[in-house]
Design a protein around this nucleic acid. Structure first.
Length: 886
DNA sequence: CTGATCACG
DNA sequence: ACGTACGTGATCAGT
């Protein structure tokens, strides 16, 4: 017999979560009849995940039957004062029930009882009948039902993440057993259900008392023995409240339900009705799934795309003029397009689609011309990838001036997918599958049969064409057409050049370092093992924690989720306790450099003696680039050992130079600009050292001479903190000063730079009003969490609202500088190559005789990228390797 | 595949 | 009473 598995879902609570998970898309999720469908859609998505994970034999979705329950009769204020359920959600509830019915899932509600009680009752039935039970809810109340046979999954942020409450997890979180959780709630009450517990008792105190006394009843038997205290007084005064709260908090595990466990057995899906339902609500994704599964089909079978397969004979038939609409897609298997195998290509010219696996056809005159002619405009998905791929075939692409990937990134960068199919789905087009569906993943990744592959490639060019207009319309609505045309598209072209050029890395230098570091590491290892009295894996935080905190008995200053923390922060404080600690720190530092940089870089030097990174242009939330394979944006610079790595980065020509130019304080200058703060602007205009200036301001000094190095260091941290959306706690931790002192710094700061404070308030308010934060070039970052109920979540969104326009505008600025820079290099026919970007810094590979020109033009171009209310300053350095270019 | 750690701006 | 600085990527251990 199959396993007996019971899934119990709190329908109202999950629908509520589902509704808010897609709240931002509320108005885009509408059926043709005008019904909102976001909660129905998200509910189904979540249900699919659950069905897959749990594989239940029995399911019940319980709903609340109405406002009046035995609890409201007991206590009139129960769940009073709650915000009314939004009408847009209420209207969806019957449809959720209808959908569940079509899916063969039982729904149930019971007059006078809440969904919780139905679930409690079935959880009991499940335990009695030998079921393994999973409960899913958005409400922590139900966690009291957790047992060895019953797991309670509580939805975390959104609906996709779940927190599994087992008795063990309950113990970790609340320090009590599931049953004791009821007593804990009795003492602390429940704000969201609007009943009080004992005055001044919160989760901490409630947990402590429950752990000590086990139950409310037992606590009150012993209350007289307690020491005189405010707490004791409160406990005595609020005894009635506590007992009432206990009744309210207790889920009825024996409510008079009229159905039994056999009635919730999963029934067959009614595919025909389900299809009609999806059609009525315009759920194209689920319809596509139905089609794909071949279930409940009618005459709308999976869309087959018409295409012509190109080969040696017919490729000449492809003809194109400047007026044609052209889409092109070049397929490679694998993320790293510098190396990945070609799979094929697809080409759409007006209504005609061509596909082929033979990418060498692209080198034929007519096709090569099509791709290289600037006047023939091509729409693509991932301009940079396409450009690099074609370059490997000897084709120099021009006229790629629309990129679906970049467009979708600008419109909404919450989803950072790089998959054409996934992105198409976001915009309601399910005609194209994801690469994962077609190619598989991991071990089973493979190229499918021709008809499937060709259909996939054809559907891609189709989707690029279909979604172009809607995406351009969105860009226009967002006032992002300039950002798209004059920044992102040209940046993609510049980055393609930088990546293809790559940077020369001398393996010999790295190998020499590798040997030196190996000796140092061996010495350190020996010393550490000797003091530890045993050999162990130094790279394992777990084993290291065991040695330091259990064997050697060092004090535990910080813990992680999984055990002792052994981070730098902790070890730095323990340095004085034992010499082993300093040696571990040294070991860690060198081991990091050895494995990540020396070994890591050696692995990615290509046969041309160079590394070819990929800049990810559509990943970050702020508009910055990121760099992978290898990451050239985190090459060490802070320690001398680390810095040595930079000696391996050399110019192409032996007597050439690496030239580096970085913006000075670009983020603070952006802040001075966007805030309009007169004092900060003045400081930048007069060319003050900004951190000293800040030190003068916050320490009330008259002259820069009075600023000590410590004051400057503190002021610098405050300036950084401001950019990050400061808190006194964060600053105090960073500087190792008291929280009070940190608060003084911040207060002084805002007093001295009042418009900065105004800016921060305005940034947060604007994010609340608009739902997003925006850079000087209209790059957006959506911040749905700005309305979150939980303080931590909301506060994070607020800091983000402050930081994103600053970090993002700085990213806009350097992108403009890069575009102008490449243009200048081309105009002057220089051989110098721009090779690396590190957020506020550009690195160049310069032939000897161009150094003087570069010294002059690079800072000029960078400083004039945009016109701010304060000057932009860029500082240069150069040498025969990256280390010396400072 | 996730978490801890540490490299960068 | 609570928990916090903003962005990233690579490596390793251990589930």
């Amino acid at each position: 017999m199959a396993d007996k598995k019971l899934l119990l879902i709190d329908g109202n609570s999950v629908a509520f979560r589902a509704f808010y998970a897609l709240y931002r898309q509320l108005e885009s999720f509408k059926s043709p009849d005008g019904l909102h469908t976001n909660a129905i859609y998200a509910f189904k998505n979540m249900l699919d995940v659950l069905l897959k994970d749990v594989e239940p034999t029995h399911i019940l979705v319980a709903f609340d039957a109405g406002k009046v329950t035995f609890r409201t009769k007991m206590y009139g204020e129960y769940k009073g004062g709650r915000a009314k359920t939004p009408e847009e959600l209420l209207e969806q509830m019957p449809y959720i029930q209808e959908m569940l019915h079509d899916l063969g899932i039982k729904t149930y509600e019971l007059k006078n009882y809440e969904a919780d009680d139905i679930i409690g009752t079935f959880a009991t039935k499940g335990e009695e009948n030998g079921f393994q039970t999973t409960i899913v809810t958005g409400d922590r109340d139900l966690t009291q039902l957790a047992s060895d046979k019953t797991t309670v999954e509580v939805t975390k942020s959104g609906v996709s993440e779940l927190e599994a409450y087992t008795p063990e997890h309950m113990k970790e979180v609340n320090g009590v057993t599931p049953t004791e959780f009821i007593d804990m709630k009795a003492l602390m009450g429940d704000n969201s259900d609007n009943y009080p517990g004992v005055t001044k008792v919160g989760p901490k105190t409630a947990s402590r008392l429950t752990q000590k006394y086990g139950s409310v009843e037992n606590l009150y038997e012993h209350v007289d023995e307690m020491k005189k205290s405010k707490l004791k007084e409160n406990l005595i005064n609020d005894k009635d409240k506590a007992f009432l709260a206990k009744k309210l908090a207790t889920i009825d595990r024996d409510s008079p339900v009229t159905i039994d466990i056999d009635d919730v057995k999963r029934q067959p899906v009614d595919y025909e009705k389900l299809r009609q339902f999806y059609e009525k609500l315009n759920f194209r994704k689920f319809l596509a799934e139905l089609n794909a599964s071949g279930k409940g089909q009618d005459d709308t079978a999976t869309e087959k795309v018409e295409y012509t397969v190109l080969d040696d004979h017919n490729f000449k038939d492809v003809k194109v003029t400047e007026n044609d609409q052209v889409e092109f897609y070049l397929a490679m298997l694998g993320a790293n397009y510098h190396l990945a195998d070609f799979v094929g290509f697809s080409l759409k010219i007006n209504d005609q689609i061509y596909v082929s696996k033979d990418v060498e056809l692209l080198e034929e005159d007519n096709l090569k011309h099509l791709l290289e002619d600037e006047k023939i405009k091509k729409n693509v998905f991932d301009l940079k990838r396409t450009t690099v791929g074609l370059h490997r075939l000897g084709i120099h692409a021009h006229g790629l001036d629309y990129d679906m990937l970049l467009a979708s990134y600008l419109v909404n960068n919450e989803n950072n997918s790089n998959d054409l199919g996934e992105i198409a789905h976001l915009y309601g087009d399910y005609s194209v599958k994801t690469d994962m569906e077609v190619y598989g993943k991991g071990k089973s990744e493979h190229i499918p049969d021709d008809d499937i592959l060709f259909n996939h490639l054809a559907s891609k060019v189709n989707a690029i064409e279909k979604l172009k207009e809607p995406l351009l319309k969105k860009l226009k609505e967002h006032e992002q057409d300039d950002l798209f045309d004059t920044i992102e598209i040209p940046t993609a072209r510049v980055l393609a050049k930088m990546e293809m050029n790559g940077m020369k890395v001398e393996a010999s230098t790295l190998i020499q370092l590798q040997n030196e570091f190996a000796v140092k590491l061996k010495e350190l290892e020996d010393k550490i093992y000797e003091q530890a009295g045993e050999r162990f894996n130094l790279n394992s935080p777990k084993q290291l924690g065991h040695i330091l905190f259990e064997k050697l008995g060092l004090p535990v200053l910080k813990k992680t989720k999984t055990g002792y923390s052994t981070s730098v922060e902790v070890l730095d404080q323990l340095k004085t306790q034992s010499p082993i600690v300093s040696e571990i720190l040294d070991y860690r530092q060198i081991a990091k450099i050895q494995s990540t940089y020396v070994k890591g870089l050696l692995d990615v030097i290509q046969p041309d003696g160079r590394v070819h990174t990929r800049y990810l242009q559509t990943l970050t939330a702020t508009g910055r680039l990121s760099s992978v394979d290898p990451n050239l944006q985190n090459i060490p610079t802070r320690t001398e050992e680390g810095k040595q790595i930079r000696k391996a980065f050399v110019p192409s020509e032996p007597d050439g130079y690496i030239f580096s130019c970085d913006y000075s304080q670009v983020e603070l200058r952006v802040l001075a600009h966007v805030s309009g703060d007169a004092h900060m602007q003045e400081a930048f205009k007069t060319g003050y050292d900004i951190h000293s200036h800040t030190a003068m301001k916050i320490f009330h000094l008259d002259s820069p001479d009075q600023v000590t190095p410590l004051m400057r260091r503190h002021a610098k941290a405050v300036n950084f903190g401001i950019v990050y959306g400061i808190s006194d706690y964060g600053l105090s931790k960073n500087l190792g000063i008291s929280r009070k002192r940190a608060k003084e710094f911040i207060d002084n700061y805002f007093e001295q730079y009042p418009q900065i404070k105004d800016y921060m308030n305005k940034a947060v308010q604007e994010a609340r009003d608009k739902g997003y934060a925006e850079t000087i070039m209209h790059r957006r970052r959506y911040l749905p969490d700005i309305h979150a109920k939980k303080y931590t979540v909301r506060a994070f969104a607020e800091r983000t609202a402050i930081n994103s326009p600053i970090q993002g505008s700085a990213a806009d600025i350097i992108k403009i500088a890069m575009i102008n820079m490449q243009k200048k290099l081309d105009e002057l026919h220089l051989k110098t190559k721009m090779v690396v970007q590190v957020h506020d810094e550009l690195i160049f590979d310069v032939p000897k005789d161009e150094l003087e020109t570069i010294k002059k033009i690079v800072p000029e171009v960078m400083q004039s990228a945009v016109k701010l209310d304060v000057p932009l300053i860029a500082d240069s350095g150069w040498g025969h390797n990256w280390y010396d270019a400072k």
